[in-house]
Design a protein around this nucleic acid. Structure first.
Length: 653
RNA sequence: GCCGAAGUAGCUCAGUCGGUAGAGCAGCUGAUUCGUAAUCAGCAGGUCGUCGGUUCAAGUCCGACCUUCGGCUCCA
């Protein structure tokens, strides 16, 4: 509190008008003077860019806004207050429970507790009911500022050692607490003025969480709450979760017969014939682009003497993620990345500046040990392959290589219909190697590649690889979720380690730069993302079964077979459903299996050399001559068209 | 790895108080020969994740392990 405060503070309202009030007037009073409705809706105020409690005395002049539910800053305050509400209810129901922290997060909030035992789903119901009661009580929420010693006493008396620990770690002399009825919590605030303002929440699940996120600390029980400003928004959020579950790649992968797992190969997918088809088509797609973008594919070993990984730095920086084996009394490591092998291949030949850039692409299988609790479906596995490449170029060629890479990224992501590409720049992490001036140079070069194109990027401090900074490419899927796919990592360190050189124009040896890059990233993970993005409705070119011929009865099996043969001979993936079933059943099956084209053939079609076309999700489209349909399908395949035979609703963003 | 939950037929799931395991779909066989999202009937299908324990008796209770799922950054 400023001692030499002016007697008057001047507030600039969003409409540009100004208002002068005595210093110390509360935000609520100002809101009330503007309008009673505004005061009723007010959750907080914002002065000079800081969100404050309604009851806070105003001590400085500046831009002033009333934070109502429609204000951009309302949600965080509301969620944070709702987190306190959860803690309040827990303290009432389980007096022995110690409280941790409870911040607002995306879609809601969480609160960490040390309950001495895990919360059960029944506990959550009780807590929710108690929360509703506290809302009905409409208890005022007040801010209390006090010396640290006083706060320590309060929380010691309440048997809340975690709170005491936090207070003691705060550098200021004073701390703030918030009190609502019989509950008090250490908190910076701000909060809504009373518990009656709250009420739109749902406790969704519990989970273990380490105190302060550090696994050396004891594990607490975290309660997650979904929380929004209106019931409608909360319902929509819960519906979105439901929709996301419906397109879960693990569920669809099983239903569509794409892949399976087995306990004897934990976190390692087995791609069934249909899944392998999609997988290989993805590889084929990248191979075609490699020709266009000047890459050369190589094939490299799986297992290397551990000395290689000592040289590459993996042994000291990545060992805990690697598989090792011993044979002939030598220690071998299974490769977790292709790069060390590529360095040996580069070093095996003499390159001149005329040869550069050299772009080695490799679909080699990689193995990385992931801790048992972190694996997940196809998105986090222990064996996978990347659309991996290492580009060896001169420093001068780096900008052109980045341009070329960004073009490739755009072409690939566009083909799959991903939108909203975002780029993150990962800077020097804690574990790093090389020269610091090279790091700085590379970080600048990556940033300028995007600035030059007028594209946004954001900085992920400390998120670089141990051998250099990197760019990460993030896309948005069909239901708005972000996924990190491509990456480009600059490596100044390994060319030194492996003494990689090229002969320059001047006849002298020069050091190339290595760019590690992938577009899809892990093919396994990309496959999983693609399943969720398309909800299993693969674009025509990727569909494992593009067309299914359905005879209306067994009498038409022969003609169906002829049609199928024509399709297969044209290079399409087609089958015949020759089961002894009624037409409706076969169609239902084809639709459930998301086959893009169902070709129904009956007597009519046989005599006219046609098929009745039913596109997946689009229903019956009537008869087509086979002679016209086949080229149409081939064109959709060749052009990798996004929407042939894909239901409209699967394409909406 | 840690906290919590789950694992029963190929799939989705039921199985009460511990008393010798059930449905639907899929599969197979037969009948039906059918025009745009499920034809009917019959048959077959199981070391209840694995190992150990308690018990006259274990899918069920206890323990260990395996696998899968939800989490473990979002700093009062």
């Amino acid at each position: 509190m400023s001692v030499d405060a002016e007697p008057i503070v001047r507030l600039t309202l969003p409409d540009g008008s100004t208002r002068e009030v005595p210093t110390g007037t509360t935000g609520l009073a100002v809101a009330a003077s503007i309008g009673s409705r505004l005061a009723k809706d007010a959750l907080a105020i914002k002065l000079n860019g800081r969100v404050l409690d309604l009851a806070r005395p105003l001590l400085e002049s500046g831009p002033f806004e009333v934070v109502t539910p429609s204000h951009a800053d309302a949600l965080e305050v509301y969620r944070h207050s709702s987190a306190h509400l959860t803690a309040h209810a827990v303290k009432r129901l389980f007096p022995g429970v110690k409280i941790g922290i409870g911040p607002a997060i995306e879609n809601g909030y969480y609160y960490d507790f040390d309950p001495g035992r895990a919360f059960t789903p029944e506990d959550l119901e009780k807590i929710e009911a108690e929360m509703k009661k506290i809302v009905a009580e409409n208890a005022p929420i007040e801010r209390l500022e006090m010396p640290k010693a006083e706060a320590v006493k309060i929380f010691s008396d309440l048997n809340d050692p975690l709170k005491v620990e936090i207070i003691e770690s705060i550098p200021d002399d004073h701390v703030s607490c918030y009190r609502q009825a019989d509950f008090i919590d250490l908190c910076r605030g701000p909060h809504v003025p009373a518990t009656g303002k709250l009420g739109v929440f749902k406790l969704t699940h519990t989970a273990g969480a380490y105190w302060k996120g550090d696994e050396r600390n004891p594990m607490l029980q975290r309660i997650y709450g979904a929380c929004f400003l209106s019931q409608k928004q909360l319902d929509e959020h819960l519906a979105r979760l439901e929709a996301a579950r419906a397109r879960d790649h693990r569920k669809l992968g099983k239903e569509l017969g794409l892949f399976v797992f087995h306990p004897w190969a934990p976190a390692s997918p087995f791609f069934l014939p249909k899944g392998a088809m999609v997988y290989n088509l993805l590889v084929q797609f990248m191979r075609e682009l490699y020709v266009k973008y000047g890459y050369q594919e190589v094939v490299s070993p799986q297992v290397f003497d551990a000395d290689l990984f000592k040289k590459s730095g993996h042994y000291s920086n990545y060992k805990e993620n690697m598989y090792f084996t011993e044979i002939d009394e030598r220690e071998f490591g299974v490769k977790p990345m292709n790069c060390p092998g590529h360095f040996l291949m580069y070093a095996s030949q003499a390159y001149s500046y005329r040869d550069l850039p050299v772009r080695f692409a490799d679909f080699g299988r990689l193995h990385r040990y992931e801790r048992s609790g972190v694996t997940q479906g196809l998105t986090r596995v222990r064996t996978f392959c990347q659309d991996d490449s290492h580009i060896f170029c001169s420093i001068d060629q780096m900008p052109a290589e980045m341009d070329r890479f960004i073009d490739l990224i755009d072409e690939v992501y566009g083909t799959f219909g991903f939108s909203g590409i975002r780029v993150g720049l990962g800077t020097r992490p804690e574990k790093w190697m090389g020269k610091i001036e090279n790091w700085d140079k590379a970080e600048k070069a990556l940033a300028s590649a995007f600035e030059k194109r007028g594209r946004d990027f954001f900085v992920n401090a400390g998120d670089g690889a141990f051998y250099g900074p990197k760019l990460d490419f993030q896309v948005t899927d069909a239901i708005g979720r972000p996924w990190q796919l491509g990456t480009l990592q600059v490596d100044f360190a390994n060319p030194d380690n492996f003494d990689l050189v090229y002969t320059g124009e001047d006849g002298a040896k020069h050091r190339p730069v290595v760019l590690h890059r992938a577009v899809l990233g892990s093919l396994e993970r990309f496959f999983g993302i693609l399943i969720e993005h398309t909800a299993g409705n693969f674009p025509f070119w990727l569909a494992p079964e593009q067309a299914r011929v359905i005879p209306v009865s067994e009498k038409l099996n022969e003609y169906a077979h002829e049609v199928c043969t024509a399709l297969v001979q044209a290079g399409l993936r087609a089958t015949v459903d020759r089961r002894n079933e009624k037409l409706g059943a076969k169609i239902r099956n084809g639709e459930l299996e998301k086959v893009p084209a169902l070709l129904i053939v009956g007597e009519k079609e046989r005599t006219s050399e046609t098929v009745s076309l039913r596109k997946h999700g689009a229903g019956d489209l009537g008869s087509r001559s086979l002679a016209a349909l086949i080229p149409d399908m081939l064109a959709a395949t060749k052009s990798r068209s996004l929407n042939w035979g894909v239901p409209k609703e699967a394409l909406t963003h």
